[in-house]
Amino acid sequence: MTHAPTSRLYFLDWLRIAAFGVLVLYHVGMYYVSWDWHVKSPHAGPAPEPWMLLSSPWRLGLLFLVSGVATSTMLARDAGRGWLRARSQRLLLPLACGMLLVVPPQPYFEVVQQHGYAGGYLDFLRLYFQGHGGFCRPGAGCLILPTWNHLWFVAYLWVYTLVLWALVRGVPAALERAAVPALRLLRGPALLLAPLALMVAWRGMLAPRFPSTHALVDDWYNHAAYLSLFLLGAVLARRPEAWDGFARLRHAALVLALAGWAMLALRYTGWPGAEALRGLRPVAFGTAQWCGIAAAIGFARVHWDRDHAWRRYLCDAVFPVYLLHQTLIVLLTQALAPLAWPPLAEGPVLVVLTLALSFAGYEGVRRVALLRPWFGLARRRPSAPLAAAPA
């Protein structure tokens, strides 16, 4: 399979858009599962969890890999201190805006529902900005305030960007040098098997000792997995022919990813032998993780590597939508709770309203020059034509 040279990998843009779309569905689903989250439906239980596992192993890893590609591409054009300063502003201003303005309603309703907090929102904000540490639950620890909640991805992306920038500044040809042996190693089935083995190793060795916290300083399993994928994306960006390997292996990757998911889902079936296979869960998770990423890239390479009028708009919108969506989900769950709808009726309404209000927020923000950088948009006059945001 061959593709005409293109200055932009459109299929990666579409993958990024789709992955953030799945994120909205996933976070709505978190309201209905038994896993810990900020607020919980009175109908919450394990029934949706196998379906949540269809995307949870690979979705964020895919976003870090795509971000590595985009960061590497930008650094190939400019690796100066000015670029790092601009990139830091593009990531850290929205993170600050999120922690100060967007995120606080999430922990407020969390402490109301899970800690019995009876104060008003303004009273809670005082505690939030003071770093109050008294919201604790046995076995769950204490709520850290202030918090970045779902915006942890932005903080991690900035740190990984800093690591890659320092590498390129210190050894300007490092990525080109790494790309040649990497492409030779990741040839044929090894494109699936070598990264899969690495993801299984991280899961087996680090996840039991360092469970996911999203707190940056102690999250070593997530750093090992996500930084590996970010750096892999950075290397692959220097060898565009590598993407055709994913296209050739897409069907095998999909089969393996579904097999990994099926192994993870066995615990929900009630099958007596499921617990005996507990030791294989790192293999199942690592397989679902990497092969899910590889399958998504492969199918997107074949079917989505083209431009469309919506792509530029959605690329621009995806960061503000990501910034806003989880707070909107929490607010909407509390607004809809008195109606006592069953999950099959309430869930789709939550998805539609969250997307509608998130895009409405984007439409408002993009027209106000002062707000644009605080929501991850390029600085420009409101009347200027839209420019595609970097992935």
Rank of each mutant, 00 (worst) to 15 (best):
A247L: 01
I293W: 10
L324Q: 12
A247H: 04
L323T: 11
A257K: 01
G292N: 06
I297F: 12
A300I: 03
Y313T: 14
W261A: 02
A294Y: 05
M263Q: 14
T333A: 12
G347D: 00
A257S: 13
R278F: 12
P342T: 07
A274G: 11
V349N: 00
Q334I: 11
D307L: 02
H308R: 11
W271C: 12
L266Y: 06
T287I: 08
L323C: 07
A262C: 05
I297K: 02
Y268T: 08
R306L: 09
W341Y: 07
V351R: 06
A262D: 04
P240V: 10
P342Y: 08
H303W: 15
A252N: 00
V349E: 00
E275F: 12
W290S: 11
R301G: 03
G273W: 15
A294V: 10
A288M: 09
A284Y: 07
V352I: 13
D307H: 11
A300C: 04
L344I: 07
H251M: 01
G245E: 12
Y268W: 14
A295P: 03
P342K: 01
P320E: 01
R311Y: 00
L331C: 13
A295I: 04
I293F: 09
Y268I: 08
R311G: 13
G347K: 02
G279S: 07
A300M: 07
M263V: 14
V318T: 15
L353R: 05
L314T: 10
A340N: 14
D305S: 09
D305M: 00
G260N: 06
P282M: 07
